[in-house]
Design a protein around this nucleic acid. Structure first.
Lengths: 132, 132
DNA sequence: AAAGATTGACTTGTCAATCTTA
DNA sequence: TAAGATTGACAAGTCAATCTTT
C-alpha cells in the first residue's frame, strides 16, 4: 500500500513519500530539530540527518543556526518546499481515503482505528523505540 | 512493531525477520522457485534473488537444478535451515500474540482481521504489485 | 520473442565511531 | 561527562540491463 502511495506521489508531484513525511513534520513543528523528526518518525537520528541532507540538497528545506543551542540547527521549509508539501499532501490524503475510508465506511473505520491504537499502546508498554 | 519482532528474532535465534519469511515460504511451497517467493512477499524478483543468495551463503538453503525447466532452480531448506525455522517461528508467533491477541481479545481481533482484509481487496482491485 | 533469473547502480534505512557544544 | 548531530560502512530493497532457456 505505501508503495502505491509512494508511486503516485513520485509521478504526480515528483516527490517520494519519505520526503513528504519529513516536510509535514518540519511544517508542523516550531523550531524543528533533527531530533524531533527522528522521534516523530521513530527512525534513528543518523538516518534522519541523512534524510535532511537530501531534502536540503533538493532545495526544499534549510538548516538555520539555533540561537538557543549551538550544537543543533533549526529546520525550515523553503517557499519551494512549502508549496510542494501542500499539493503533495492533497494527493496523499486522497490515497488514504481510497485505501480505507471508501472500502470500509465510517463505522468499520472507527473500529479499525481504535484497534490499532490499542495495539500501539500495548507495543509502547513493551518498549520499542530506536536510539542512535 | 516489525522492528521489535526483528530485534527479538536476531537476539534469540540469530536470524533476521526477512530470512525467516523466506524460509517459511520455501518450506510451505513444493518445488519452490525464486518467482514464487517474490509473489508471496510482493517484492521484486531481483531483490528475491539477492535474498536467496544471502540465505544460501549462510547455509540455510540450497539451489538445486530444476529438472522441469533449466532456466530456474528449485529451492530447498538444509537440515540446518529447517531447524532454525522451527525455533524461530515459535518466537515469531509469540510476538504476534503479544502485539495483537493479548491487548485486543478475540472479538476485536476478528474485526481487525476483516477490516484489513477488506482494505486489501480494495487495494488489489486498484492494482498494486511489483514487477522486475 | 517471452519467461526465469542474475547482476550492478542506486535509495533509504541501521549501527558505531566521532566531533562539537552544554 | 551528556546531548545533538554528523559520518562511514553495511543491510535490504528497487529498477534496468543482460544472459540463458523456452
Amino acid at each position: 500500500m505505501w508503495n502505491t502511495v509512494d508511486a503516485r506521489l513520485r509521478k504526480e508531484c515528483g516527490v517520494p513519500l519519505g520526503n513528504l513525511n519529513l516536510m509535514l513534520i518540519i511544517a508542523a513543528t516550531p523550531n524543528c530539530r533533527v531530533q524531533d523528526i527522528a522521534a516523530a518518525l521513530e527512525i534513528t537520528v543518523g538516518g534522519t540527518s541523512q534524510a535532511v541532507d537530501r531534502l536540503e540538497k533538493l532545495g526544499h528545506c534549510v538548516r538555520k543556526p539555533n540561537p538557543a543551542d549551538r550544537r543543533s540547527s533549526v529546520l525550515e521549509l523553503t517557499p519551494d518546499g512549502e508549496a510542494l508539501m501542500k499539493s503533495a499532501s492533497q494527493v496523499f490524503d486522497g490515497e488514504l481515503e481510497a485505501f480505507f475510508k471508501a472500502p470500509l465506511g465510517e463505522e468499520a473505520l472507527g473500529n479499525l482505528a481504535s484497534a490499532l491504537a490499542a495495539a500501539r499502546v500495548a507495543a509502547s508498554v513493551r518498549g520499542a523505540t530506536p536510539s542512535s
